[in-house]
Design a protein around this nucleic acid. Structure first.
Length: 259
DNA sequence: AAACAGGCTGACA
DNA sequence: TGTCAGCCTGTT
């Protein structure tokens, strides 16, 4: 819990110490400085005022990757449900303060799960994707340390790389990749574009889209082609700069406000 | 009841 | 290279 500038945490594990908490919540970020850089224009200024203090978190790569594979074409309640179901079925049982919890399962547990059982967690067509991703991670085909060490564009390429002509991470497209890069690989310029962000940009930053896309989005269309995504991504990063991910976070919250 | 949800893949032009 | 339908399931 937070008491003024102090964050108090309790844990049943020695591993969750203050260093961990500081890393997870990225307490080293100079939020004031970052948000000052992004406070340009009416829309950003208002979003930052409204949600001031909101931070990026630094998640475990595997959990982040798996969660966003599940998140495709689903809404938040559904995503929570899927994550909870998978955790209950495959995750370690934890106990804290007399309450029981299930940890999110490691990649190995999911790589060896049966498709039918995964499907029963309500994953639908995501079940085979999740299992393949888990297998790839278990087999060490995804080098997160390497990804984290590279600049954004190279990191994204590395994360999405194809090996032996085979796509390693089936179920991971540009949006999921950007989420992983931003929330667990420290790529602050990553700018994940979902339907909310696309709509918000069309409304408040029309210049970043170009006329064709702008009119399509404002007349209700939400589907983005790969080319659309690439163009928006690059213009958004050019506009918001090296902390584009923070801009995305605040814009997203503002876009969903009152919905 | 039809559409849509915090996309992606595979097929085809 | 770009476009397009289809996909699991839950909710409105």
């Amino acid at each position: 819990m937070q008491e003024g500038d102090v964050l108090r945490c309790q844990s049943s594990s020695d591993l969750i110490n203050s260093a961990f908490v500081a890393k997870y919540f990225r307490l080293g970020d100079d939020l004031e400085h970052i948000l000052a850089l992004l406070s340009k224009g009416e829309v950003m200024t208002r979003a930052i005022q409204k949600f001031y203090g909101m931070r990026l978190v630094d998640q475990y790569e595997w959990e982040c990757l798996a969660s966003f594979v599940l998140a495709t074409n689903a809404n938040i309640p559904r995503i929570k449900k899927m994550v909870a179901a998978v955790s209950e079925k495959y995750g370690d049982l934890l106990e804290f303060d007399g309450e029981k919890f299930h940890a999110f399962p490691g990649p190995m547990a999911l790589a060896s799960a049966s498709l039918a059982e995964l499907h029963d967690c309500g994953l639908g067509y995501r079940a085979p994707f999740l299992r393949r991703v888990a297998a790839s991670v278990t087999e060490g085909k995804v080098d997160f340390a390497e990804v984290a060490s590279l600049p954004y564009l190279d990191a994204r390429k590395e994360l999405l790389k194809e090996l032996f002509g085979e796509k390693i991470l089936l179920g991971v497209g540009p949006k999921v990749a950007d989420c992983v890069l931003l929330y667990s690989c420290g790529k602050d310029e990553a700018f994940p574009i979902d339907v909310w962000i696309a709509k918000a940009l069309a409304k408040s930053f029309p210049k970043l889209l170009g006329p064709r896309l702008r009119s399509r989005l404002s007349s209700g269309g939400t589907k983005l082609s790969l080319g659309d995504y690439a163009r928006i991504s690059s213009s958004a990063r050019a506009h918001f700069g090296r902390y584009a991910g923070f801009a995305q976070l605040y814009l997203y919250m503002a876009a969903r406000e009152g919905e």
